[in-house]
Nucleic acid binder design. Structure first.
Lengths: 225, 225
DNA sequence: TTCATCAAGTCATCTGATGACTTGATGAAT
DNA sequence: ATTCATCAAGTCATCAGATGACTTGATGAA
């Protein structure tokens, strides 16, 4: 059943303030009404107003300056973006992460340093099999290897997003399915490193795609059940 | 100069609580100390504690249940991820968005619907040139077209991220450089749509990469100055 | 014209109080 | 022995009042 909506005053106050900002009624750079005025406008206490304002500050929409006032910092609401990504479904998340994997491997073929290469090879060697220390530990080692590939791309934005996706995907997997995904084999991973070491971007992309395909296929199968 | 650090109690309380969570000292699902206890632990008033907790709730790390307590919802701190992406530099952002563009075009070749195709073609036709209504309006039309390609991939996670990147990149461009990027020509864009319409993923990827290359090259040139 | 001083306005923080809700214990009824 | 209504303690939600810290524009003297 649809759970009964039980909202609290702070959330509704936050929504009201956010609406003023994203709609542009309070322009970027402008000072918004002070706490006492917001208390009247929203019909809540000052403590509630402060909590709502604080949330919007933490989301980068507002900016408070003691002694001066509270100002609109930005009208673009990026805070909910990742929440929506989290709710976008496992297949979509996996594909988005794959997009990063692919392009990162390609860039790594151009930009990898000797240290990058060494790290990738070391993590690949340590990766082992699922038998060593349980599946959770194996997944962690596997992710560490993939992360090192992304790191070799030298792109910090991609690394950040990759971290986010790995976290979101593991959480989602734990929450939704406990069937097992095919264990990507060692050879497929080694092929990625080889291609990067050879500075061959085409082969690097192909290697990542080759290892992705069976996992994605199994994922589609599990989700369609 | 390094600006004098002037932090407020709420922020430092938020950091302290966040540290307990991401470190795992407060495990996922556990109940954290109540407001009175946090008041003692953090040596701040209950109002400040509540503001800090409220921020972490809005970031998905905590979960308050009236009458019961406050619980750890997730130990993954995604809130700062996008901030760090924003600070990762224009080249990295552009490359990350390009990764989405490429894979989205490839997926679109598989999954596009007739409606997707029609929308892409319409936006391409409306795109026009920079002469029509100024460069800002042109950029907006250009982005609308690219967004329609991502939309044709049917991947909501990618669409969300794409939105974020377009917003972040335009903000960064406005803030950092006012040199001009090469205007991607009409033929290159049409090639993308043709490849998708032909359900040819390889050609779709190649078409996106072909149109990306000159922009990225110019970007590197501007940033290296 | 310049600059120190000041007062008003605003956010930051603390304290106390009351209401709403959850949860486990209690005890009566079956 | 089990079931279930009741209750009390614990916890968050919200309000109200007060004081401190900081900013900013006005004021007035040099």
């Amino acid at each position: 059943m649809q759970p009964a909506t039980r909202t609290n005053l702070t959330d509704s106050a936050t929504s009201s303030l956010r609406a003023e900002i994203v709609s542009g009624r309070w322009g970027v750079g402008e000072r918004i009404p002070n706490e006492a005025a917001l208390t009247d406008l929203l019909s809540v206490s000052r403590g509630t107003v402060r909590e709502a304002v604080r949330v919007l500050v933490s989301q980068g929409l507002l900016d408070t300056r003691q002694g001066s006032g509270t100002y609109v910092r930005s009208a673009v609401d990026t805070s909910a973006a990742l929440d929506r990504v989290k709710r976008s479904g496992l297949r979509d998340q996996w594909e988005a992460r794959a997009a990063l994997d692919l392009e990162a491997a390609r860039l790594a073929a151009f930009r990898h340093t000797p240290a990058d290469l060494e790290r990738m090879r070391q993590l690949l060697a340590e990766r082992g099999t699922v038998a060593d220390g349980g599946s959770d530990a194996f997944i962690r080692r596997d992710l560490a290897f993939h992360k090192s590939v992304v790191a070799a791309s030298g792109n910090r934005a991609m690394m950040e997003l990759y971290d986010f996706f790995t976290a979101a995907i593991t959480e989602t997997i734990h929450a939704t399915i406990d069937g097992d995904l095919p264990e990507p084999d060692h050879r497929a991973h080694a092929a990625i490193v080889d291609a990067i070491a050879a500075s061959d971007p085409e082969r690097a992309v192909a290697a990542v795609r080759a290892f992705m395909a069976p996992v994605l296929a199994q994922l589609e199968r599990l989700l369609s059940q």
